[in-house]
C-alpha cells in the first residue's frame, strides 16, 4: 500500500455538522468549538503546554508536565528511556562503588536493546546519517523532521531495497528542503553526503514517483536570499533580483532553465544596477554554475526585459 506523505501532517479542520473551517480552540474550557454553528467538537482537551507562570528558561523546563516531544529523527521517535551516565540515584546520591560495574553493564544492555532487529538498526543508522548531513548543511529542525518522515515512508513502502541508505537519505533531504521552501542544490547535498549528484537526483525522482510527492519546480526566487547573503549583498539588491526574476517568469523566460542559473544572473544584474558590482566569477562560484551560464541568462534577461542597461 502506498502512503501519501502529505497525509501524515493533515489534521481535521472542519466542523462535521456545517463544514465550516472556522474552529475555535478554547484553551480555558478545554474545548474545540465550531465558530459558525456553535457545536462543541471536542472537550476535555489535554493542555500540552507547560505551567503558565515561568520567569526564566529553567523554571519553564521544570514546570513542563510532559516529556520530550516525539520526533521522527530518532529511530524510536525518542520515546525510549535512557540510563544516564551520571552515577547518581533518583535522590541524587552517589551509587556505591560496589554497584558501579552493575550499572555499567545495565547501561550497555539498555543501549543495545534500544535497537531491536535489522530494520530498526538500518533506520537508526540512516537517521544518524541524516542528522549528520543536515548538520553539515545547517538545516533547521523542521526540515530534519520532514526529511525523516520522507525516509520513513520510503522504508514503509519498501523502496530502500537495492538502493544505498546514503542515497535515499540524501534524496529525502533534498525533497524535504524543497518542501520547506529552503531548497538546496543537488550539488550541495551531494557534497556533504558522499553520494554523487547523479545518484541523488535519480533517487529523488524515484522517491517522488513512488511516494506521490508532488512538488512544484523550484523557483529561482527561493535561492536569492541565500546566495545574496553569501555574496554579502544588500537587501535592495535582493529585492531587485527578485523583481527581475518575477518579470522573467511572467514572460516564460525561466522555462527549461536551471533555477540556480537564473537566480545567479538576476543577482548579478541587480548588483550591477545598484552599484554593488560583483564579478560574474564570484556569483558563479557561490551559485555553483559556470560564468558562461550567467552570461547566457544575463543576455536573455536584459534583451527580453528591456532593462536598458549595458554592462
Amino acid at each position: 500500500m502506498k502512503v501519501d506523505v502529505s497525509e501524515i501532517e493533515k489534521v481535521e479542520t472542519k466542523c462535521p455538522e456545517c463544514d465550516s473551517e472556522k474552529l475555535i480552540n478554547d484553551h480555558e474550557r478545554g474545548e474545540i468549538v465550531c465558530g459558525a454553528c456553535g457545536l462543541v467538537i471536542d472537550d476535555n482537551l489535554v493542555d500540552m503546554g507547560p505551567e503558565w507562570r515561568a520567569f526564566d528558561h529553567e523554571q519553564r523546563d521544570k514546570r513542563t508536565r510532559v516529556g520530550a516531544p516525539i520526533t521522527y529523527t530518532i529511530h524510536d521517535k525518542g520515546l525510549s528511556t535512557m540510563i544516564d551516565w551520571r552515577n547518581k540515584d533518583i535522590y541524587g546520591r552517589d551509587i556505591p562503588a560496589r554497584n558501579r560495574a552493575q550499572w555499567y553493564r545495565l547501561r550497555k544492555w539498555q543501549r543495545k536493546i534500544r535497537i531491536s532487529g535489522a530494520t530498526e538498526r538500518n533506520l537508526a543508522f540512516a537517521l544518524s546519517e541524516l542528522d549528520r548531513d543536515s548538520s553539515r548543511l545547517g538545516l533547521p529542525r523542521s526540515v530534519r523532521e520532514a526529511a525523516s518522515v520522507v525516509y520513513r515512508s520510503a522504508v514503509e513502502n519498501k523502496l530502500i531495497r537495492g538502493r544505498s541508505i546514503e542515497g535515499v537519505v540524501a534524496a529525502s533531504l533534498y525533497a524535504a528542503c524543497r518542501r520547506c521552501n529552503v531548497p538546496r542544490t543537488l550539488d550541495e547535498i551531494a557534497e556533504v553526503s558522499r553520494v554523487s549528484k547523479k545518484e541523488v537526483g535519480r533517487t529523488y525522482r524515484f522517491l517522488t514517483r513512488e511516494l506521490n510527492i508532488k512538488l512544484p519546480p523550484t523557483s529561482p526566487v527561493d535561492y536569492v536570499p541565500r546566495f545574496a547573503s553569501e555574496l554579502s549583498l544588500s537587501g535592495e539588491v535582493q529585492s531587485k533580483a527578485i523583481e527581475i526574476i518575477e518579470k522573467a517568469m511572467e514572460k516564460g523566460l525561466t522555462s527549461g532553465r536551471g533555477p540556480t542559473g537564473v537566480a545567479a544572473a538576476a543577482l548579478y544584474i541587480a548588483s550591477v544596477l545598484l552599484g554593488e558590482r560583483k564579478t560574474q566569477r564570484d556569483v558563479a562560484d557561490i551559485a555553483g554554475v559556470t560564468e558562461v551560464t550567467i552570461r547566457n541568462r544575463y543576455k536573455e534577461l536584459t534583451e527580453q526585459l528591456d532593462m536598458g542597461v549595458t554592462l
Binding site: L186, R209, P216, P217, T218, P259
Partner: peptide, 25 residues
Amino acid sequence: KTLNLEAVALDLENTEYEPEQFPGL
C-alpha cells in the same frame, strides 16, 4: 509554439520536471 514548462508541470498529470537536472519535461 513555445511552452511554459512550469505551467505544464503543474497542470499536466504524470509529469516530471526538474530544471536543475534536465531542461526538458
